[in-house]
Design a protein around this nucleic acid. Structure first.
Ligand SMILES: [Mn+2]
Ligand SMILES: [Mn+2]
Ligand SMILES: [Zn+2]
Ligand SMILES: [Zn+2]
Lengths: 156, 156
DNA sequence: ATTTTTGATGCAACATTGTAGCATTAGATT
DNA sequence: AATCTAATGCTACAATGTTGCATCAAAAAT
């Protein structure tokens, strides 16, 4: 006697990553889903390298180039945004609802990047005629609390 | 009869580049002087590549690495500053007197970078305790007047 | 369920931007 | 003129992306 088989299998739990991708007309692939999940789970923007490390940590096989292309696609679709952190590599973060563009803090000692959710980026500014602003990036550079403490201890 | 020879040759016109370098305890070298002159002559920050092209234009021989090191030294000395333009390469500009930190505009169509002398970068912002800001970078991204015009013409 | 379509992948090669090591040169000083 | 050493000019190397193209597989069509 065959095991019970419902006529329609239960739909997979609709991960928001999968939904996001489909909603933008893209194919739901392993790397895309994993990258979105990693970004969703992070409180600060991540570099390609950090994302790759996260995927490795979860034993999700992935190709370097595919990862770059996945990130590129996410940015094109407006699902994620790219940030010039002050280091050489781009960083990526999910564009969370509300769309309030915020500034970032870059610690020049340890390289850490932090979202300053409370610091908005200026939406406009006096520009030459004909110029149009589409987005603004504000990065504050300095020392984070941990690195500032170390410096003080060191200099006593 | 020998030609007239003054006992002390007339001092070379003290270029401000030469003075700047000496004042900072550096050796006055061909590349350093040329780089400063190029930067002084520009109204907007220049990439390594643009500076190299400018030197070529003036037939000033120079080595790629030496140019990188000259720029690095200028930044260390506080004579110039490095800007993350939104493209992959750094850009450099002389820190002109007054020290008023200004924002920059990056045209995402043509890549041009413009100094927004009238737009100050925020000097402070609400930060987590222990964090210290040392400098801020504000870059507005969008379309310059020329590129905006082209777009309009194209879409009619 | 099978076939078809084509977006997306995975690999190798390449490009750009910047650094490190080290012998040699030349700017400044004695 | 001799000396000292910062700076140069090479060559390699590193880090971060990008391009081309054959192959695969997600989604659609049958
Ligand atoms: Mn953020
Ligand atoms: Mn400027
Ligand atoms: Zn830190
Ligand atoms: Zn433009």
């Amino acid at each position: 006697m065959p095991a019970y088989r419902p006529s329609t299998p239960p739909p997979p739990p609709p991960t928001s990553a999968r939904e996001l991708i489909s909603a933008h007309g893209g194919r739901v692939t392993r790397t895309r889903v994993a990258v979105i999940d990693v970004l969703l789970g992070s409180q600060h923007p991540l570099s390609h390298d950090e994302i790759a490390a996260a995927l490795d940590g979860e034993h999700i096989a992935h190709d370097r180039v595919t990862l770059y292309r996945a990130l590129e696609w996410l940015v094109e679709q407006g699902i994620a945004q790219r940030i010039a952190s002050g280091e050489r590599a781009w960083r990526f973060e999910i564009r969370r609802g509300g769309e309030h563009r915020h500034a970032h803090f870059h610690c020049e000692r340890c390289g850490q990047i932090l979202c300053l959710e409370d610091v908005p980026t200026p939406a406009s500014a006096p520009l030459p005629p004909g110029f149009a602003v589409e987005r603004a990036e504000l990065v504050l550079h300095g020392a984070c609390a941990a690195c500032g403490r170390h410096a003080q201890e060191g200099e006593q």
